[in-house]
C-alpha cells in the first residue's frame, strides 16, 4: 500500500456512491471495493464513513435496499439507485464539475 491516498472532500462521498451504483446494484463492501478500483487505489473509502453515508442516502430516498444472495451464498443487503437518486447524482455531478473546474482554474493561474 505504498500508493499515495487522497482524503475525500466533504460531500463527495455521496456523489461517489451514487455514481458507483449507476453501473449495477451493489452491497456495501462491493461499493467500497469498486471506488478503490476505479480510483486506482487513490480513494480509500473509510468504511466507518461508508455506512453512515449509505443510511443517509437511504433516508433521503436516493437509494433503496433489497436483500439478495451473494456469490458465496450469503444473505447480503444490496443497494439500488432510485430515480430521485439518479436525478440527485446528475445535479451533484454538475455542481462538482463546476467546483473542480473553478479550483483547477485558480490553481493553474500563476
Amino acid at each position: 500500500m505504498g500508493k499515495k491516498k487522497a482524503d475525500l472532500l466533504q460531500g463527495t462521498l455521496d456523489l461517489l456512491i451514487l455514481k458507483t451504483l449507476t453501473l449495477e446494484p451493489m452491497h456495501g463492501w462491493g461499493i467500497s471495493r469498486r471506488i478503490r478500483q476505479l480510483s486506482d487505489g487513490v480513494l480509500e473509502v473509510g468504511q466507518g464513513s461508508l455506512y453512515p453515508a449509505l443510511y443517509r442516502l437511504k433516508d433521503r430516498g436516493f437509494v433503496k435496499t433489497k436483500w439478495a444472495i451473494s456469490d458465496e451464498d450469503r444473505r447480503v443487503k444490496v443497494y439500488h439507485l432510485t430515480r430521485s437518486g439518479r436525478q440527485a447524482l446528475k445535479a451533484e455531478a454538475d455542481g462538482f464539475r463546476l467546483f473542480v473546474g473553478a479550483v483547477v482554474q485558480i490553481l493553474e493561474t500563476s
Binding site: 468504511q47 466507518g48 464513513s49 455506512y51 453512515p52 453515508a53 443510511y55 443517509r56 437511504k58 433516508d59
Partner: peptide, 10 residues
C-alpha cells in the same frame, strides 16, 4: 460506526 449510522439514518 453504528452510532454514526443511527445519527444519519433519519
Amino acid at each position: 460506526t453504528k452510532e454514526e449510522v443511527r445519527d444519519t439514518r433519519g
